[in-house]
Design a protein around this nucleic acid. Structure first.
Lengths: 224, 224
DNA sequence: GATCAACAAATGGTATTCCATTACTCTAAA
DNA sequence: TTTAGAGTAATGGAATACCATTTGTTGATC
């Protein structure tokens, strides 16, 4: 039942394994990623590991320097700011197009994801809610029906997932998603676009508040 | 003098070779890319060829299906439309940020690229002018000082280069670049953004006109 | 004549091996 | 004690070999 799909490539499995390890914090930013070690650890040869590292490099999760070991990408505040700026143009575009172009079955998928998100946010199931929120975004991008946009979003997906760990006002996010859904459903591109912009702005504000809270907590701890 | 840099990776050289072959039309869209053949043709083993195909897959120039041969990506009208839509949000963003953040030495680079473009457009040097126009865009993206934006633009650079082959009103492009440069120089983000949007729109119109002209020509030829 | 099955050829995925380059360490000299 | 340098270990890049999967073709059957 839970047996792995033999058709999936080893390199993809290694990539998934490594990606989760990095995003779950098992591998520290800046730490070495040595092909031979990873290969031995995962039980494959170096070739699929190389391929996997290439993929993660494309996603921006690892830094692949020529002729020396790769390292886990260190995300800085500047990286987060860059991501926010890009989202501020791509998310409105995605939701505008989704509103203008969605078909009935696609809208239904969006609705289901939204319901999952609301329900899990209501009962404070952080992991499921985060996942559903990510699904909501992803489905909206699909509805936009622009393959290049989907590809670009795919390359920043891991970064996004990483940035989401930074804050967690799930109910607030779910509420904004409700408004976004309604704009898409009503085929109101302008409203969807504006809401998406606001959504990014509010997530930026929330992250800042979160960072301040963490810093205050740290200061308090030091003081004691 | 023109001796190759031995420090550059073999895979990068293969990628450059293949990329140029595809963009120059030496390899037809849809044609097979067989690792063994490419390796023999370029005189290396399959390994760097595999790596190169991975890179070009990331750039959207080749389609890499699992367990069977890769093919040269076939660009459709839909692909061009997708590219235009993405440019309509990323280009304004890039020029707005470039206007707001540029430093003196960066602006100087932009000015030099612009002068090259104007001069070569004046004497109808198509190749140099296209190259300079591409440089102008690329430098502007650098001035925007957003690493993620640079990366995303990098992934669509090959597509852009491909789409540029479709039209060639060089002087018109150069004129619009002059206006863009002035907005950037004046640190007028709003104007730069609006001009960039118009710039994309006019390039879309021009391509359409070009396509219509080509089709009319074809019809005339058939009629004779 | 069309269709499907089986076999053969071709192809990409992976493992193994070797090599050039890089990073580390230890020693000796200032 | 610090620093420069040589020697050594470690690492990624590339070549080669082998295997599983896919594709193309041929022939038999309906």
């Amino acid at each position: 039942m839970s047996r792995v799909d033999e058709r999936e490539l080893e390199s993809s499995r290694v990539a998934t394994w490594l990606r989760d390890a990095i995003l779950d914090g098992v591998r520290d930013p800046g730490s070495k990623l040595i092909e031979r070690d990873l290969a031995a650890e995962f039980g494959v040869s170096r070739v699929p590991v190389r391929d996997a590292l290439k993929m993660l490099d494309g996603e921006g999760l690892v830094e692949l320097r020529p002729r020396t070991w790769a390292i886990v990408r260190e995300f800085t505040a500047a990286d987060l700011a860059d991501l926010d700026e890009v989202r501020q143009v791509l998310d409105p575009m995605a939701f505008r197009l989704a509103a203008e172009r969605h078909r009935r079955d696609g809208l239904e998928l969006l609705r289901v994801a939204l319901e999952n998100e609301q329900e899990s946010a209501r009962v404070d199931n952080i992991l499921v809610s985060r996942r559903a929120a990510a699904d909501f975004h992803e489905i909206a991008v699909q509805l936009a029906d622009n393959q290049l946009l989907s590809d670009l979003m795919g390359t920043i997906r891991s970064r996004l997932r990483w940035s989401l760990v930074q804050h967690d006002d799930l109910k607030h996010i779910a509420d904004e998603h409700v408004a976004l859904y309604e704009a898409v459903r009503d085929r109101d591109g302008d409203r969807a676009s504006a809401l998406a912009f606001d959504h990014v702005e509010s997530s930026i504000r929330e992250r800042l508040a979160h960072a301040v809270a963490v810093r205050a907590e740290a200061t308090r701890t030091v003081a004691n």
